[in-house]
């Protein structure tokens, strides 16, 4: 009997990958934001690669679901040289989601501090931008910028995988110079 894994591999060899064919372009909005926050002098060569550490600072987990989706074969983030890493010490970019609950504020601050320079902080999702629908709670700081300096935002509730990709591509372009 042919084992199922062999069949599956053979099928993909013949039919090609699941990866979406439509090209994703860097987000214009994000490029403008970056030009403002980074300035021309801050451009650093990273050799077309970005390592991202994700921090959930109070998200409802909707943003996490979409981050998982960009890692799946259809959007396949890694084909652009962007990958998620396990430690802030390996990261160039901190991707912050959630309105930043006060219970996570210290952890967020320390994770940013643990990331070597040059580093960029991206606030992803409406909550991380300004607290979203959790704004004004006793338990919420109200966006990543309330706790750490933010270089770029990716709006949406949650942002779609294409939004996330084009935001990250803009960042890659900007820091690549």
């Amino acid at each position: 009997m042919i084992p199922p894994i062999a069949k599956m591999l053979a099928r993909h060899l013949i039919k090609g990958p699941h990866t979406a064919k439509d090209a994703v372009t860097p987000s214009e909005r994000a490029l403008r934001e970056l030009a403002e926050s980074l300035g021309i002098t801050a451009q650093v060569k990273l050799g077309r690669s970005l390592a991202i550490r994700e921090i959930d600072a109070g998200s409802c987990n909707g943003c996490e679901l979409e981050i998982h989706a960009v890692n799946h074969p259809v959007y396949d983030l890694e084909r652009f040289g962007i990958k998620f890493v396990a430690s802030p010490r390996h990261a160039d970019v901190l991707l912050v989601t959630g309105p930043v609950s006060w219970n996570m504020a210290e952890a967020l601050r320390r994770t940013v501090e643990a990331t070597p320079e040059p580093r960029w902080v991206v606030a992803m999702g409406d909550c991380a931008i300004d607290g979203g629908c959790f704004k004004g709670s006793y338990a919420v700081a109200g966006g990543a910028a309330a706790i750490v300096p933010v270089d770029m935002t990716i709006p949406g509730c949650p942002p779609t995988p294409v939004d996330i990709l084009s935001g990250l591509l803009a960042l890659l372009e900007a820091v690549e110079g």
């Binding site: 959930d56 109070g58 998200s59 959630g98 309105p99 609950s101 219970n103 996570m104 952890a107 629908c133 959790f134 004004g136 709670s137 006793y138 338990a139 919420v140």
Partner: peptide
């Protein structure tokens, strides 16, 4: 747990 407490009942 409790790190992502957002005060939803209050909101």
């Amino acid at each position: 747990l409790g790190y992502v407490h957002k005060g939803i009942a209050g909101l």
